[in-house]
């Protein structure tokens, strides 16, 4: 009554968009960067990486990032953490276990994903409590 206009907010929209982006990733549609993790190539969308990681933001935001379409990430223990973080970026679900948390923590530190770093610390702390 008397309202100037109506807004219908679709509360599932952001998760539905993310789900579709993940489907595009899995099918290699519009992926524009290859991440080499321990020699394993992972295809992804720069826009998703830059939105989720301070490290990728600093690389791809500038003109220098335009030509970068293959990027090597450190191998070693944190390599497994990078695939967990890539899945997190596209699903909002961060898989952690006592065995994998240190690798995820190291990878999140490298990718400057501070909120994930804090969540890993909370998880590791909790797993030490009796």
């Amino acid at each position: 009554e008397g309202a100037l206009g109506y807004v219908r907010e679709f509360t599932r929209h952001s998760s539905d968009v993310l789900g579709n982006l993940n489907e595009l990733r899995l099918r290699g549609i519009l992926t524009d960067v290859t991440l080499l993790v321990g020699g394993q190539p992972l295809r992804a969308h720069k826009a998703v990486l830059i939105a989720c990681s301070g490290f990728f933001y600093s690389i791809f935001r500038g003109r220098a990032g335009v030509g970068v379409d293959v990027l090597s990430l450190p191998g070693g223990p944190e390599a497994r953490g990078f695939t967990t973080l890539l899945d997190f970026m596209y699903t909002s679900r961060l898989r952690l276990s006592p065995a994998t948390a240190p690798a995820v923590l190291a990878a999140a530190t490298y990718l400057q994903m501070e909120h994930v770093v804090q969540a890993c610390h909370r998880f590791i702390q909790a797993s030490y409590e009796p």
Binding site: S53, Y57, V116
Partner: peptide, 22 residues
């Protein structure tokens, strides 16, 4: 079947905020 996975909901911010254009 896969081991039991407990899901904990995190309500806080999950990723960095891209600064708004000054």
């Amino acid at each position: 079947h896969e081991g039991l996975v407990a899901t904990v909901k995190e309500a806080g911010r999950s990723i960095h905020e891209i600064p708004r254009e000054e």
